[in-house]
Design a protein around this nucleic acid. Structure first.
Lengths: 264, 264
DNA sequence: TAGTGGTCTAGACCACTTC
DNA sequence: AAGTGGTCTAGACCACTAT
């Protein structure tokens, strides 16, 4: 009823004859209907019409809303589920993905114990302050130099051992109310808080991984000798529209633990 | 015509009435038709009926062969393409994926220059000999201890600099005719040779990544001081049926280069 | 022009969850 | 029993590549 029926609107009467209705875009910059539907659904996700953890309308409802067949919204949802934006549950419905539940923890911190087990860890906040972005950070966050950013330093302990040191930069505009107190009291994944409190969902990330010798300050915090081999992990995280919203540098102690990766 | 019509054979006359034919399996261990088709296609790939780089029969042909609708084989092929076993080319056909062409190189060696560019590299063979598997290697390759294996050591040079040292273990049975001469003369990715000469296609792999200090022997070969921080990459590669067919330990020098990873 | 993969529809039925 | 996602079919048409 209330909807943009998308652009391909060659609506001959639906019950005309054996010729099915079909898209019309001639050729230049052709975009399939289901891609457009995918875009519309993404908009609703981004605007907060359906929030993380919530159920979205059923396929038949969406088909009616967008005035397309169920098969077409199905294909759109298929891709969004493959992108980890939606989660399908047979018999129940389709839900907006969230960093809270799921096994979403291991999705971004891929550190396993040598025996392959996924160990729990606790976070110790070292620092949280606001400052002006360096040229490098500004570039990576798509900000102007000297724009306000939030810097977080924290330590992750696995089995009581200091294992990961993180330096996290966030755009100050988006994370306006983020304070040390809020961080200190929060339990669970950082990304879960970001999505719940700031409406910013991390969709994907890229990492650059190197082996480096521990600098004195880092070595001290991780309880290893200076020069000790550490995994250096430079991450940039992106939200809807592929906008970068986090720069993170991590140092991992990989004795007893390893970074796991699947090549496929 | 000549085909296993798969198990779900409740074939009422196709032109009976408005009730479409449908699968019949009651419930326990239910497997969709397209999954069974996927299995049949995989068998043909594994048996060599369609070889890497070759075209496979069209969707309509396969639909006739398996006695299912085009949409069903389409869904099967969709998944096989997502698994990198097949490659679709609109207007041309569907082809068996290969490690030769494509951009398949970067798929397994994810080392990029600091500027993000994918640099070419050359391989220098250090050693290739046959020996008996250690307990550890046997376990990982799913062999019996002391079974014959091939050990390859090689050096990868990026821009003339020794950057990667690899130790590769392969099951001796599968790689019977593999010799140092054959390796030395071969240009291009190792996996391309494996699939062309030994009919063994690497489908997926898992990696365990750690930061380590260079041992003297390794340091010497990589032209770095002993103790220098290196990326240690332990890879196990699998072929059809998730059978492990390669164990590889690599040491990467990550000055000027980094290991790239996408989290999504 | 013919053949291939790609899109879209409409309808039937199945499997799973909830009431 | 009703509702949801999941499977399967059949047919029409589009976009792309070859000839």
């Amino acid at each position: 009823m209330s909807a943009n029926p998308v652009s391909n609107a060659n609506s001959t009467a639906p019950e005309s004859g054996p010729s099915a209705s079909a898209p019309a875009s001639p050729s230049p910059t052709f975009s399939p209907l289901y891609q457009q539907i995918k875009g519309l659904i993404t908009q609703s996700l981004e605007s907060g019409e359906w929030k993380p953890g919530e159920i979205i309308p059923s396929e038949v409802e969406l088909a009616a809303r967008y005035k397309v067949s169920q098969g077409t919204v199905r294909k759109a949802i298929d891709e969004l589920a493959a992108d980890n934006l939606l989660v399908r549950r047979q018999g129940k419905g389709t839900f907006v993905a969230t960093h809270n539940e799921d096994r979403a923890q291991f999705r971004f911190l891929r550190l396993l114990a040598d025996d392959g087990a996924e160990h729990p860890h606790i976070s110790r906040l070292l620092e949280c302050r606001r400052l002006r972005a360096s040229a490098e950070i500004a570039r990576q966050l798509d900000l102007k130099p000297a724009d306000p950013v939030v810097l977080i330093k924290r330590l992750l302990q696995f089995d009581g051992e200091n294992t990961v040191l993180d330096e996290i930069w966030l755009p100050g505009g988006v994370f306006r109310g983020l304070t040390a107190e809020r961080l200190a009291e929060y339990k669970g994944p950082l990304y879960a808080m970001f999505e719940a409190d700031f409406g910013t969902r991390m969709i994907r990330a890229t990492e650059k991984i190197r082996a480096v010798g521990a600098e004195p300050a880092v070595a001290d915090l991780l309880n290893v000798p200076a020069g000790f081999p550490l995994l250096s992990v430079d991450r940039v995280s992106y939200t809807y529209g592929d906008r970068p919203v986090e720069v993170r540098r991590g140092w991992y102690v990989t004795t007893g633990y390893y970074y796991h990766n699947d090549l496929s």
